[in-house]
């Protein structure tokens, strides 16, 4: 039985190895300077790159983090510090509901909320959709991390004459900071790979754009277009772009783990 369990475990991680293998096999050879520095060429021609999508993803995800992280971390602090009552219960439940909500639904929500009233697709709308995904995720991880801080530290600070807010910020949150940053990075890594919420918000763009009020390309969107398109050249680019995306996402996840491991002190 132990052998069976071990084999099934190996089977579970086999796809990861296969996917990574294929990404390297089919994508690595396309990673050259042109791929990173140029924008798409007209369909049917060979060459071109995804500079526009890399920059676009950076802008969209950065904007989402800018909006989502403060709100999510603040909500998480609320849950840990003041969340014992009815309101806390409600917020916690709502966060879990939102965490379970399919991202495509967040996408059409952002469309009705921002795209339709404004009358045009925009990178901003996509960033809002990603932020809506990020907020409940970060709120719950922040809460867990803050809760890990021993009560005795809080008491020690209060006994020194720290006001409550300073106890919370400079002792409790500060102690949990590594964990909070890790949670934030993991959340950002997750939304960086999201495609569905961007379909009807940022829409995509074959040109290089840095205007957040206009449609913008993101790496996952570009992969979707290339993967489902008819041209072998597009498929080649899709593999290469996927390799870049996965390296970015895994890179963020690895940095997150390093932050968690490097925490100054114990919890």
């Amino acid at each position: 039985m132990t052998a069976l369990v071990g084999m099934l475990s190996a089977l579970a991680v086999l796809p990861l190895i296969l996917i990574f293998g294929y990404l390297i096999l089919k994508g690595a050879s396309s990673l050259n300077l042109e791929f990173f520095l140029s924008n798409p060429v007209p369909a049917g021609q060979s060459g071109g790159g995804v500079a526009h999508a890399i920059v676009g993803s950076g802008i969209i995800v950065g904007l989402a983090a800018l909006v989502g992280l403060p709100v999510g971390i603040g909500a998480g602090i609320f849950l840990a510090e003041y969340g014992s009552g009815r309101l806390g219960w409600t917020v916690r439940f709502v966060a879990d509901v939102l965490n379970g909500t399919p991202s495509i639904i967040i996408g059409i929500f952002a469309w009705t909320w921002i795209v339709r009233p404004q009358g045009h697709f925009s990178a901003f709308a996509g960033a809002v959709a990603l932020a809506v995904i990020l907020i409940p995720l970060v709120a719950r991880t922040t809460e867990e991390m803050v809760r890990l801080v021993p009560h005795s530290l809080r008491e020690a600070a209060l006994a020194l004459g720290y006001p409550r807010w300073r106890t919370s910020l400079s002792i409790v949150v500060r102690t949990a900071l590594a964990g909070i940053v890790t949670g934030g990075l993991v959340g950002v890594a997750r939304v960086a790979g999201e495609t569905a919420p961007l379909l009807f918000t940022t829409l995509g763009n074959l040109n290089f754009s840095t205007h957040v009020t206009e449609p913008m390309q993101a790496l996952p969107l570009q992969i979707y277009v290339y993967a489902t398109g008819p041209f072998p050249e597009w498929h080649r680019l899709a593999w290469a772009a996927s390799l870049v995306l996965i390296l970015l996402v895994f890179g963020l996840a690895l940095v997150a783990r390093r932050v968690a491991a490097n925490r100054y002190g114990t919890r």
């Binding site: 403060p70 709100v71 603040g74 909500a75 602090i77 609320f78 849950l79 510090e81 003041y82 969340g83 309101l87 409600t90 917020v91 709502v94 966060a95 509901v97 939102l98 909500t101 639904i105 967040i106 059409i108 929500f109 009705t112 909320w113 809506v132 907020i135 409940p136 709120a139 006001p163 409550r164 807010w165 919370s168 910020l169």
Partner: peptide, 30 residues
């Protein structure tokens, strides 16, 4: 009881209220 404490609690509470507000908006829009 301390005004700064109250302000701090108000800020994090307001941020937390963003979650129910979002969910409500989502349900209403859908």
């Amino acid at each position: 009881a301390n005004p700064a404490d109250r302000a701090y609690q108000a800020v994090v509470t307001a941020l937390a209220l963003a979650l129910p507000a979002l969910l409500l908006a989502l349900i209403v829009e859908l």
